[in-house]
Design a protein around this nucleic acid. Structure first.
Lengths: 213, 213
DNA sequence: TAGATTGTTAATCGATTAACAATC
DNA sequence: TAGATTGTTAATCGATTAACAATC
């Protein structure tokens, strides 16, 4: 039910603003923040801060600035993070394990980190049934049932490249609209599904360009 | 000794082209590839492929296309990946461990993956001296000496957020120009140093925007 | 040669920045 | 009210796409 299509460049900055506001309210006891201050801390221009926020409403007061608590709450709602978002992770290798622990730690330690890994999947019979941070590893054929039962909204793919597309297909078939893929391969999904790939090899190979001199 | 400043958007696609060429030469036995075919496989337009490559020279032949092997080698040289690039990783927690194993596996399994983790650092006395995939974990004060000895050109930061800036400073002081930061914080470095941050929390929070409906 | 595809220039598109009237 | 800062429009910047002459 979104009115206009918000560009991905804009959406990408919203969690950053949220983080800045959290940090700000912890260390500064002013209830207000200007686009200048918010921009400085987020590393973007004040103009862009105002333009980004204006896509979603008029959150500030001229001459005054933005109410920190109010703005943070609005961003949380915009990002669907005002309620817990259930996450599934497929591929419990060392990377999958590390990411599960990382997300759990933030979920436990931080007040407003509402992303929760509630299901783990792997096809290795030696792993199925094992318990990670209180979650039992299931086989992939349990995906549809678990997604339905836990109302899972996001999937993390940490399987080897050759399996990634098949796993993405399973997640899509189960109704998941947001996927974070760590396998070094481009996965194809219907256009109403959003995939972001974090490709460590490509990142490192790209950085190598700057490594000399 | 670069002539003109190549935009980051261009550099980011080069490893992708390299990957496509590797895949192509494994599965197709034609020695030539057109910008159309390369673009299709990389998910970019043929125009952009030609424009990207033209920044670095005239690699193709009109009416014919690009020589796959030749182009791959040129890209490898451009990215400084024609020789082994030594990498240091700081922060041997579960994420650091997983990434170390991941990079080692690719280094061992793939012909042309020339990124090699050759040093690990951590401040935990219980970890120092331990051995991961044949590499001994050192304390952070060994960074300058190890960087010099192994000619380390790239650093991966996988420490908790509060230590990330200090670690980046150490790497910079040791002469490293390329840093991949996994801590959820913006690290500041001199402008001749390149930092890329992979911030899992921000990525997931961003994806949450698309997770509903 | 005729057909195909590059390298490159011009046109388009989209995102960011600058400017300023509105208004708290 | 006077000063400050938003919301928004216009200008700028940069990246991508389209078009085409050059040439293999």
């Amino acid at each position: 039910m979104r009115m206009k299509k918000i560009s991905d460049a804009v959406v990408r900055r919203l969690p950053l603003y949220m983080r800045v506001l959290d940090e700000y309210s912890k260390t500064v006891d002013t209830p207000l923040i200007s686009s200048q201050e918010l921009g400085d801390r987020a590393g973007v221009s004040p103009s862009l801060v105002r333009k980004d926020l204006a896509w979603f409403g008029e959150f500030g007061k001229q001459g005054v600035g933005y109410d920190v608590e109010f703005l943070r709450n609005r961003l949380q709602v915009i990002l669907n993070l005002d309620r817990e978002v259930a996450v599934a992770l497929v591929g419990v290798g060392s990377l999958g394990l590390a990411l599960t622990r990382y997300v759990h730690r933030r979920y436990n330690d931080e007040d407003h980190f509402n992303l929760h890994v509630v299901a783990l999947f792997d096809n290795d019979p030696n792993k199925i049934g094992a318990n990670v941070d209180g979650i039992v590893i299931d086989s992939l054929d349990k995906i549809p049932e678990r997604v339905r039962r836990h109302d899972i909204r996001m999937g993390l793919i940490t399987v080897p490249a050759p399996s990634a597309q098949a796993v993405a297909d399973l997640l899509v078939a189960a109704g998941i609209k947001a996927i974070l893929n760590f396998a070094p391969i481009k996965v194809t999904v219907p256009e109403d599904v959003h995939v972001t790939s974090t490709d460590l090899s490509l990142e490192m190979q790209r950085l190598a360009y700057y490594s000399s001199q």
